[in-house]
Nucleic acid binder design. Structure first.
Length: 569
RNA sequence: UGGGGCGUCGCCAAGUGGUAAGGCAUCGGCCUUUGGCGCCGACAUGCGUAGGUUCGAAUCCUACCGCCCCAGCCA
């Protein structure tokens, strides 16, 4: 559809380019940054990446690639209380898995602590920063409110000498945590709260996962981020909308220091229906046992989505389709599902698996006979070849593929009806066996030997449905984990008075069932993906072992029959 | 003493004064050894509302309305 070559994409501003890429293209045209494009992905190593980060990854690494620039990865590690090497490692793994490469450009804000300290001294000397002795509570009270100016600290006009002395002693560890901070001297009456003498350094007597005990004062985000961008000569510092009000402060530090003028641009963060995206809620989900860890396939974390069976290609495709804009938005989960179905349709080998087995005995099929039927591995990909699937007198079909008293449009099996067994034979239901409670426990059928391979019989009979099946004696047992949306409400954050987001947890977000899968799956490896014909795409869970197979349902197939049923309810 | 943003189809989203792209979803139909895939078609006389400017407005002006963000020594 898009005939644009990549050259056109990078040289022309127009349809298809989001506002940030348009800006980059325009800057390239005018030579604003002398042809240089440098972006960065700046996670804080205090948690795992989620699909919202994927959007940022695609934007930052995408722009770098499309415009012949570079994208750095920089760990924004200014808070020793929450950050860990373990998170750095998992973040790097997730970024690589997503398919992005930062080359040599791996940076840490903590590597800039010495420089940041020197710059703080410069700001003190310039009369632009001061040590404040107020407590956190007092600072907070004096900041004023959104509609009311703050008041200046009594320590605001200390001499440069006193500030230098105090700041040096802060660094030397002479003061207790919380007793003093270094503040930028800007404007306590600014309508922008961020400009009311923001804190630059606080005392935290904790060792840092990278700098150890070298420091007991740590710079804040605002005092660190822009300067880090500047040190790395980042041209486009792209972040989410909530940082918009920080931009004047970002610029203030850069100007006050007279350093490379990186520029911040904000875009709307990703929101997805039927899930939550905040670290606080992730922690609650894990710690309260609503999910089984950060990589639970129901979690919107990269590790969870990966375990669910999503491919990086599908996630990137999704990020490309939803676009980049400044309007706060909520994207539908269905869009993500579309992307993984489209990807897996092309590459996932097909296989037959019966998730809710109903026994079928084919009465006129010879006892003890086994035939090997040829099955196509992927009709979308001829190079995937074929395999042999054993067929015998007793098989399992899907329980929902039989109805004793079917509605008009039901094409599947029912008493007297005939259907095709994929790659096998046509069968006709002759009898229904029930238990004492009247539950159907077995079907008796006959087959037509002239339909071998599932082919049409010479008499021209037609059949409207094809069912998947497995041979009872050859099938493998498997644990199948059926995953569904984590919440029952599109936006679990949009609550009425008195409600809790947990009220909308979907009790059926995970249903574990024993299934029967074809022999072909005996030797699968974790993360192998398959289409279980007519049921959906499934991924081998890391818990899976030979002899104890475990499959996760990534997504169901599109099911127009289900839509019809829903409409008729 | 408030400031900063944002409103185009159910959900995303192009469009930047010349007469509303595209995707998802939905609904028809064709095809089909997956009720999958694929293919064809339908889906905004209207762009938050009301005025105004103009030959012409989603695009410019004015006023309203609605939603989001900011009062961490988190990022």
């Amino acid at each position: 559809m898009a005939n644009d070559t990549s050259t056109e994409t990078t040289e022309r501003k127009g349809p298809g380019l989001d506002f940030i890429r348009s800006m980059v293209a325009e800057d390239l045209r005018t030579g604003k940054w002398k042809g240089r494009v440098a972006t960065r992905f700046p996670p804080e190593p205090n948690g795992y990446l989620h699909i919202g980060h994927a959007k940022s990854l695609c934007l930052n690494f995408g722009i770098a690639k499309e415009f012949n620039g570079v994208c750095h990865i920089r760990f924004d590690d200014t808070n020793p209380l929450t950050e860990k090497q373990e998170y750095v490692d998992s973040i790097k793994q997730d970024v690589r898995w997503m398919g992005f490469d930062w080359g040599e450009h791996e940076y840490y804000a903590s590597d800039y602590f010495d420089q940041l300290y020197e710059w703080a001294i410069k700001l003190i000397k310039d009369g632009k920063a001061y040590v404040d002795d107020l407590s956190a509570e007092e600072v907070s009270e004096q900041r004023g409110t959104i509609k009311q100016a703050g008041v200046e600290s009594p320590h605001r006009n200390r001499s440069v000498e006193e500030n230098l002395d105090l700041f040096e002693r802060m660094r030397a560890g002479e003061f207790d945590e919380g007793t003093r901070v270094l503040r930028a001297k800007i404007d306590m009456a600014s309508p922008n709260m961020l400009l009311r003498d923001p804190v630059m350094y606080r005392i935290i007597k904790a060792s840092h996962y990278r700098t150890g005990d070298k420091w007991c004062i740590y710079p804040t985000y605002d005092y660190t981020h822009g300067q880090s961008d500047s040190l790395e000569r980042i041209t486009y510092s792209i972040c989410t909308l909530e940082f918009e009000v920080h931009r004047p402060l970002y610029n203030w530090y850069i100007q006050a220091l007279g350093i490379f003028p990186s520029e911040q641009t904000e875009f709307a963060r990703l929101n997805l229906t039927y899930t939550v995206m905040s670290k606080r809620k992730f922690i609650a989900l894990v710690e309260e046992g609503h999910v089984n860890g950060w990589d639970d396939p129901r979690m919107p974390t990269i590790s969870g989505i990966r375990r669910r069976g999503y491919t990086p290609e599908a996630i990137r495709d999704f990020c490309g389709r939803i676009g980049v804009a400044r309007a706060a938005s909520m994207n539908q989960y269905e869009q993500l599902e579309h992307c993984i179905r489209e990807d897996l349709n092309k590459r996932a080998p097909r296989v037959m698996a019966v998730l809710d087995p109903l026994k079928v005995v084919i009465e006129n099929y010879p006892e003890g006979q086994v035939e090997e039927m040829e099955a196509v591995n992927n009709p979308e990909d001829p190079s995937a070849g074929s395999r042999m699937v054993p067929f015998s007198k007793t098989i399992y079909i899907e329980r929902e593929d039989f109805m004793e008293d079917p509605p008009k449009k039901f094409f599947r099996l029912s008493p007297g009806a005939e259907v095709r067994l994929r790659y096998a034979y046509w069968i006709k239901c002759t009898d229904v066996v029930k238990d004492a409670e009247g539950n159907v426990i077995e079907l008796r059928c006959t087959y037509d030997p002239e339909t071998r391979g599932g082919n049409n019989p010479p008499d021209g009979r037609k059949v409207k449905a094809t069912l998947h099946w497995v041979s009872a004696e050859h099938a493998l047992d498997a644990e199948v984990r059926l995953y569904d949306r984590l919440f029952t409400k599109e936006d679990p954050n949009a609550l009425e008075e008195g409600e809790d987001w947990r009220d909308y947890l979907n009790p059926e977000s995970l249903v574990v069932i024993p299934g029967k899968v074809e022999r072909h799956l005996a030797h699968v490896k974790p993360l192998d993906r398959f289409q279980f014909e007519r049921k959906g795409y499934f991924c081998v869970d890391p818990d899976s072992k030979p002899g104890k197979l475990v499959f996760n349902r990534t997504v169901t197939l599109r099911d127009t029959w289900a839509n019809v049923q829903k409409r008729n309810d």
